[in-house]
Amino acid sequence: MSQNQKLAELSAAGVSVWLDDLSRDLITNGGLQEEIDTHSIVGVTTNPAIFQSAISKSDLYVEQINTLAKSDADADAALTAITTDDVRSACDVLAPVFEATDGHDGRVSIEVDPRLANDTDGTVAQAVELWNLVDRPNLFIKIPATKAGIPAIARVIAEGISVNITLIFSVERYREVMDAYLDGLDTALRNGHDAGKIESVASFFVSRVDSEIDDRLNAIGTPEALELRGKAGLANARLAYAAYREVFETETRFPDLQAHGALPQRPLWASTGTKNAEYPDTLYVSELVAPNTVNTIPVKTLNAFADHGWVNTESIIGKEAESRQIFDALTAVGVDLADVFQKLEDEGVAKFEVAWADLLGATQTQLDAAQS
């Protein structure tokens, strides 16, 4: 099988293409391997909503749930076993990619329980637990970039654990995330860990920013406001990339760590499926192309890009001033950006909590049925 030309071009431009999806069906029927072989996939991300969809739609989990029921496992223990098994299997599928890229890619992410988003100690404890349970070097532990998550990130990195920081919406919070990564590396080195084996990505959400800001622009309704629709998400991501380059290429702190083998924390573009049908369906892939980035892409958007996507290699670098002008214009027409970003963070955590609660309830029902 040969690689899709459009996705191969995206990969050649410096974008690691990761699949924003996972299920036991995808692993066992060879679908994940096919994505690797034909769509340049070099990583996988998961979240509570993805697991909810996977488990609710498949019969492949029934046997394991029945076995867990016989051992009197509750829903939390059952879901931990199920999800870590799937992620471990996916890590094994991607192991050749991990080896071929010297650990740069070939990684699979699993998220801490979303109910711990505001619990620093609980997040750290579960991150260590998940790392040990999956027991694969190509694992990423996903930690949300909440206020409680920031110190947890530093502490988990300090343990030598690779981390994917998720639910980042603002450049200000992204800078806190990068600082937490560097703090964690400092401590990891003092603890005797090999910094070259610690990878991290920072998942910067894109389409949700446009959805929220577009709603506010429509409510304002002036010509100036309406003209700004569909511009905030890309501008925000471009400013994030500028911040990344500043921290890892210009400022003085990282080179000292790099001398000890530390690696830059790559920006990852998340929420890249277009939510507004009026926008091109590959917008947040085609227009977010820059070296040393990751784009985690839902299946629908991945297939669309393979069919008719384009690669704009001038889409990010050199766009900082233009992007700042867009943000200045948003403020000028009355968009409260701080409120936008806080609302998106709160909603992101809440959505994952709801998905996890639904999945816990459904799993407990299946466990009860198996025990009766």
Score class of each variant (00 low, 15 high):
Ala369Cys: 01
Tyr244Asn: 09
Leu217Thr: 02
Arg229Leu: 03
Lys319Ser: 09
Glu34Ser: 15
Tyr61Thr: 03
Leu19Tyr: 13
Phe327Gln: 05
Val62Pro: 00
Ile317Cys: 10
Ser323Phe: 12
Thr274Lys: 11
Leu189Phe: 15
Asp72Glu: 14
Asp25Leu: 07
Ala73Arg: 06
Leu32Val: 00
Thr67Val: 14
Val112Ala: 01
Pro298Lys: 06
Gly122His: 02
Asn47Ala: 11
Gly273Thr: 10
Gln64Lys: 15
Ile168Gly: 03
Leu26Glu: 13
Asn276Phe: 06
Lys351Glu: 15
Asp119Trp: 13
Asp256Tyr: 12
Asn66Leu: 03
Gly14Met: 11
Glu246Phe: 06
Ser89Met: 15
Asp85Pro: 05
His308Glu: 04
Arg245Ala: 11
Val206Leu: 10
Val17Asn: 07
Glu129Ile: 06
Arg238Ile: 06
Asp339Met: 13
Gln64Tyr: 02
Tyr181Asp: 04
Ala77Ser: 14
Leu344Thr: 01
Val340Cys: 12
Val335Pro: 04
Asp183Glu: 14
Ile65Gln: 09
Gln52Met: 12
Trp269Cys: 09
Ser2Gln: 14
Asn138Trp: 13
Glu249Lys: 13
Met1Thr: 13
Leu263Pro: 01
Glu9Val: 00
Asp25Trp: 01
Ala262Ile: 04
Leu217Ser: 02
Asp186Phe: 04
Asn295Val: 06
Asn66Pro: 00
Arg175Asn: 10
Ala232His: 10
Leu133Ser: 11
Asn191Val: 08
Thr83Val: 04
Asp346Trp: 04
Val108Ser: 09
Asn118Cys: 01
Thr252Met: 10
Asn132Tyr: 00
Asp74Ser: 03
Asp105Met: 08
Ser71Met: 14
Phe205His: 09
Val299Asn: 12
Tyr181Ser: 02
Ile161Tyr: 03
Gly103Ile: 05
Gly43Pro: 11
Ala77Leu: 12
Leu116Val: 11
Glu129Gly: 01
Pro255Ser: 02
Pro223Val: 02
Gln364Ile: 02
Ala242Glu: 08
Leu360Phe: 02
Ala158Trp: 01
Trp269Lys: 11
Glu129Asn: 12
Ile161Thr: 01
Leu60Lys: 14
Ile213Phe: 08
Trp131Thr: 14
Ser271Thr: 02
Asp358Lys: 12
Ile41His: 07
Ile82Glu: 04
Ile65Ser: 05
Leu79Val: 02
Ser40Ile: 05
Gly196Glu: 10
Gly221Tyr: 10
Val134Leu: 00
Glu345Ala: 12
Val171Pro: 04
His104Gly: 09
Asp186Ser: 01
Asp59Gly: 05
Leu182Trp: 01
Pro255Val: 04
Leu10Val: 06
Thr365Glu: 15
Glu159Gly: 03
Ala152Asp: 05
Asn218Thr: 14
Leu10Cys: 12
Leu359Gln: 03
Leu263Gly: 00
Thr123Asn: 03
Arg238Phe: 05
Gln5Trp: 00
Leu337Arg: 10
Gly30Asp: 05
Asn276Ile: 08
